[in-house]
Computed example of a mutant assay.
Amino acid sequence: MENNSTNTPTREFVWKINKAPKMKSKTATTDQKNIRELVEKQFQNMSMVLFNKINTLENEIKTIKNRNTQLEQQISNTTFQDTNHSIYDPWYL
């Protein structure tokens, strides 16, 4: 097998450096203000979404805790009778 990279001529890239740019950009102050406003609005929106989700999660936790205490009270109020009798029931029937 021949190595083709040795037979091909090398390419040279020439970079031109211009003293003055061909195109001028807009002023940075107006762009920065617009970007800052967009970022602040997006941050406020995301903050509100996060705040709402945290509130809903806290409410769900409260309802779960309330339900848990209700269930614990129900368990503590129920009396078990003949608990020993259930031990002697044949498990294989």
Rank of each mutant, 00 (worst) to 15 (best):
Met1Gly: 15
Met1Leu: 10
Met1Pro: 06
Glu2His: 08
Glu2Val: 08
Asn3Val: 01
Asn3Phe: 02
Asn3His: 04
Asn3Pro: 01
Thr6Pro: 00
Thr6Glu: 11
Asn7Val: 04
Pro9Gln: 12
Arg11Asp: 07
Arg11Phe: 04
Arg11Ala: 14
Arg11Pro: 01
Glu12Cys: 10
Phe13Ile: 12
Val14Gln: 12
Val14Pro: 01
Trp15Leu: 15
Lys16Arg: 13
Ile17His: 14
Ile17Ser: 15
Asn18Pro: 05
Asn18Phe: 13
Lys19Gly: 07
Ala20Cys: 07
Pro21Trp: 10
Lys22Pro: 02
Lys22Cys: 06
Met23Gln: 12
Lys24Tyr: 07
Lys24Ser: 04
Ser25Phe: 02
Ser25Arg: 06
Ser25Glu: 06
Ser25Asp: 08
Thr27Asn: 14
Ala28Leu: 04
Thr29Ile: 12
Asp31Cys: 00
Gln32Leu: 06
Lys33Trp: 02
Lys33Ala: 12
Asn34Gln: 08
Asn34Phe: 01
Asn34His: 03
Ile35Lys: 05
Ile35Phe: 02
Ile35Arg: 09
Arg36Gln: 04
Arg36Gly: 01
Glu37His: 06
Glu37Leu: 02
Leu38Phe: 01
Leu38Thr: 05
Leu38Glu: 05
Leu38Gln: 01
Glu40Arg: 03
Glu40Asn: 11
Lys41Ala: 12
Lys41Gln: 12
Lys41Cys: 01
Asn45Trp: 07
Asn45Ser: 12
Met46Asn: 07
Met46Ala: 09
Ser47Thr: 13
Ser47Asp: 13
Met48Leu: 09
Met48Val: 11
Leu50Met: 14
Phe51Pro: 00
Phe51Asp: 14
Asn52Leu: 08
Lys53Phe: 04
Lys53Cys: 11
Lys53Tyr: 09
Lys53Asp: 10
Ile54Phe: 07
Asn55Ile: 12
Asn55Met: 10
Thr56Asp: 15
Glu58Phe: 06
Glu58Asn: 10
Asn59Gly: 04
Glu60Asn: 13
Glu60Thr: 08
Ile61Asn: 04
Ile61Phe: 07
Ile61Asp: 05
Ile61Val: 06
Ile61Met: 08
Lys62Ile: 04
Lys62Cys: 06
Thr63Trp: 01
Ile64Phe: 03
Ile64Gly: 00
Ile64Ser: 03
Ile64Leu: 08
Asn66Glu: 07
Asn66Phe: 01
Arg67Ile: 00
Asn68Asp: 03
Asn68Glu: 05
Gln70Trp: 01
Leu71Gln: 02
Glu72Thr: 04
Glu72Pro: 00
Glu72Phe: 06
Glu72Lys: 09
Gln73Tyr: 00
Ile75Gln: 05
Ser76Met: 07
Ser76Tyr: 04
Ser76His: 03
Ser76Ile: 06
Asn77Pro: 00
Asn77Val: 00
Asn77Thr: 05
Asn77Phe: 02
Thr79Tyr: 05
Phe80Ala: 10
Phe80Tyr: 11
Asp82Ser: 14
Asp82Gln: 12
Asp82Arg: 03
Thr83Gly: 11
Thr83Ala: 14
Thr83Met: 14
His85Ile: 14
Ser86Thr: 15
Ser86Lys: 10
Ser86Tyr: 15
Ile87Ala: 13
Tyr88Cys: 03
Asp89Val: 15
Asp89His: 08
Pro90Trp: 03
Pro90Met: 09
Pro90Leu: 02
Trp91Asp: 13
Trp91Ile: 14
Trp91Leu: 14
Trp91Ala: 15
